[in-house]
Design a protein around this nucleic acid. Structure first.
Lengths: 231, 231
DNA sequence: CGAACAATTGATCCTCATCAAACCTTGTGG
DNA sequence: CCACAAGGTTTGATGAGGATCAATTGTTCG
């Protein structure tokens, strides 16, 4: 039992691929199932496969020698990750990929994508589009971390998550499923600070928070915090 | 009077290009001369040209609304920059490029590179290699900024510069030409902190510093600071 | 119910940013 | 050739913003 190749069209890098190409890719891939907390791959491993997340959620992260983590990106269904190995031979993953919940993914040999790109320019272009988007995002995160205060960074992180993975509740609010720790790793701070900031926001009715859960009640208010000049 | 097309082979993205291709690119480019402090382009401008630096030095930087700067990359001769526009139509530059000294560069229409990539897979691949390298570098910077202390970040910044643009002095030391302000922007701190750290290092014979100048006398010592576990 | 894990909150401390003032270095013009 | 201006650098004093530690309180699940 394998996935429907045509569903791969949802992957931004494959948006311009032919049906045949999608079939080939699906055919060359194997489905992997990963439990919550387990890893797709580790930073430093040879980058022999790239992945397309089919279900679940995952995160890309780096660890420094002392074990502190930094979250680089959160991945939801039909996003590609670990594709840097398709560009360079003998590349290694520059980050680790960990499942945030039980997930399945299609794993395809990097060299196969590399081979395809030799004869399909649109594939390269679309992969580059993904890369440029990613470069812009991380550049922005970097600038924020260097120049902005925590509260604003946390607001930005929440807004980013909202647009990527926000789920509407019945009341029309937006719900996110992350621990304080995870939010801290995304905004370059500690879980204590995130907790304090959230408590403060809750007092002002901006958010409503619980265990592994944040409900945004007033997105506009968050945007204000994210944008307002340093008063 | 135009540049020798074959010199473009030094550009990593053009390493596999044919002589004819190099000729075409040179032919489609115009030479621009930029004075110290002037800009090649600004963040937010339409990304209609990409550049190859022919002589001089430049930096890619972002500014936040309050005017604080972050340095993303320093560019030396025969490096390409501003190429994100070749990937996506109507793209805008995500950063500004400023000349650190009088510089000349070849400016080529982004869409021309885009066109070439349609029929020359190796060009796309080589541009992607550049991008992946860049992604890895900025990811690393991001992680450092989020998890490491200033002293170590400054050491890392110096080491990065050393490998990219270091010039050997007669005595075999490595000399770099940057102001405290510039070093601060590269390591996410202030010129005051950079100055203090450098004074401290100078006492221990690691570096020798002057106006817009840093001489590294003991690279190994810097590596130790950059790597040593948080004691 | 109890164990494991997540969140909160207070107290404390430390790293750096910030401000201010003085000091160097370099280049320019009289 | 000296004086001065402009810009880079150093250093001290001060304070704020968060990190860290510790103790307590929720929450979920077997």
């Amino acid at each position: 039992m394998s996935i429907d190749p045509l569903k791969l069209r949802q992957v931004s890098v494959f948006q311009n691929a032919t049906d045949d190409d999608l079939g080939l890719i699906a055919q060359h891939g194997i489905e992997r199932s990963i439990e919550e907390g387990e890893f797709f791959f580790f930073q430093g491993d040879p980058a022999t496969y790239f992945y397309v997340l089919i279900s679940g959620r995952a995160k890309l992260m780096q660890m420094n020698p002392t074990g502190q983590q930094v979250n680089l990106r959160t991945i939801s269904a039909w996003q590609m990750f670990g594709a840097l190995g398709a560009v360079r031979e003998h590349a290694i993953y520059p980050a680790s990929a960990q499942a945030l919940e039980h997930s399945t993914a299609l794993a395809v040999k990097s060299e196969y994508l590399h081979e395809l790109m030799q004869t399909r320019p649109y594939l390269s272009i679309d992969l580059m589009k993904l890369m440029t988007g990613y470069i812009q995002e991380i550049q922005e995160c970097y600038r924020e971390l260097a120049t902005e205060k925590v509260e604003r960074r946390i607001a930005r992180a929440l807004l980013r998550l909202t647009s990527q993975m926000g789920v509407k509740t019945q009341q029309g609010y937006i719900e996110l499923a992350f621990t304080r720790q995870e939010l801290a790793e995304m905004s370059g701070t500690t879980l204590y600070t995130v907790s304090r900031v959230m408590s403060e926001w809750e007092k002002h009715g901006l958010v409503e928070s619980g265990r592994e859960r944040v409900v945004i009640r007033n997105p506009h208010g968050l945007v204000q915090i994210a944008e307002e000049s340093n008063e």
